[in-house]
Design a protein around this nucleic acid. Structure first.
Length: 276
DNA sequence: TGACAGGAAAATA
DNA sequence: TATTTTCCTGTC
């Protein structure tokens, strides 16, 4: 399958800007899980070459998954109108898009993420997929689908222990026992505040993680997750300081309906050009 | 080898 | 209500 994109889409930035954990970097291109399939993706200029393995995936689904349909000129224009500084910030992150991931998987991913580094989170998510999920062989290597709620509900304690989640384990167990994909499908149509409230009701999920889930998997582009990097960025770039909650509020107020994109641009800018 | 990492909950004040 | 402490593991 071949997808045409504008000159201002970057597969690399989209997949590596920190929003998705389970990305396998290959010599040329990437392998990324999507539902019950894996996508092998490669970008050459304004073309994305996509091969799917497992259940068939449509052209439209891939575009939606990668955020290719987003009107990026409108988004960038809006951010620059809100704060002229984005003219500069966007230059660095130019081409990244917010993906549309599965809320169920995203929630578990960010439950694992707290006080953990990206390599560790990746390893634990891959291990979970491996011990619980089914896999498929691509070019001689096994890749495992992320397990669904039916599988995770029945995961025995011994296997869960193998994940070595530490203090996160009780929250993971509580989550898989009490929530499933249908829960997210039910609240998808709710207001931002309603969804945020429902997510905060899940044990182990606070403001930062709730906003990550809203932004990366629930079509809420005004979500504004604040971690230590964003806190630093908001202070250095916009002179905003305060608690995470306060910075989230300030970011949403300052950047409006695309605050989530603003957050990703700031994050990308910081991680790549101000890291010291 | 001890501090600390892309948080949240419980305890304390 | 605001601040501090604790939580398990991996990494350097």
């Amino acid at each position: 399958m071949q997808i045409s994109v504008s000159g201002n889409f970057s597969l690399q930035k989209t997949l590596l800007c920190g929003q998705i954990f389970r990305v396998f970097e290959m010599k040329n291109g990437f392998i990324v899980p999507f539902n019950r399939s894996f996508l092998k993706l490669l970008q050459e200029k304004d073309k994305i070459y996509c091969t799917s393995y497992g259940e068939s995936v449509s052209h439209g689904e891939v575009k939606k998954f990668l955020g290719i349909n987003d009107d990026i000129d409108e988004i960038n224009g809006e951010l620059i109108r809100k704060a002229a500084k984005f003219l500069q910030i966007i230059q660095y992150g130019k081409g990244l898009r917010i993906m549309r991931q599965s809320p169920y998987e995203t929630t578990i991913s960010f439950l694992f993420s707290m006080r953990n580094s990206i390599p560790v989170i990746k390893r634990k998510l891959n291990l979970l997929s491996e011990i619980a999920g089914e896999g498929i062989k691509i070019d001689g290597t096994m890749y495992y689908f992320f397990p669904g709620s039916e599988t995770l509900k029945n995961l025995d304690a011994q296997r869960i222990k193998k994940l070595q989640l530490g203090f996160r384990e009780k929250w993971f167990v509580d989550f898989v026992q009490n929530y499933d994909e249908a829960f997210f499908a039910r609240i998808l149509g709710n207001s931002f505040e309603e969804k945020e409230k429902k997510l905060l009701g899940i044990k182990g999920i606070g403001g930062k993680v709730a906003h990550c889930i809203l932004l990366f998997s629930m079509n809420e582009f005004s979500a504004f997750p604040v971690d230590v990097w964003i806190k630093r960025g908001m202070y250095e770039l916009f002179d905003v300081k305060g608690s995470s909650k306060e910075v989230t509020k300030a970011g949403r107020r300052m950047f409006g309906k695309y605050a989530g994109y603003a957050q990703e641009y700031i994050f990308y800018y910081l991680r790549n050009f101000l890291s010291s």
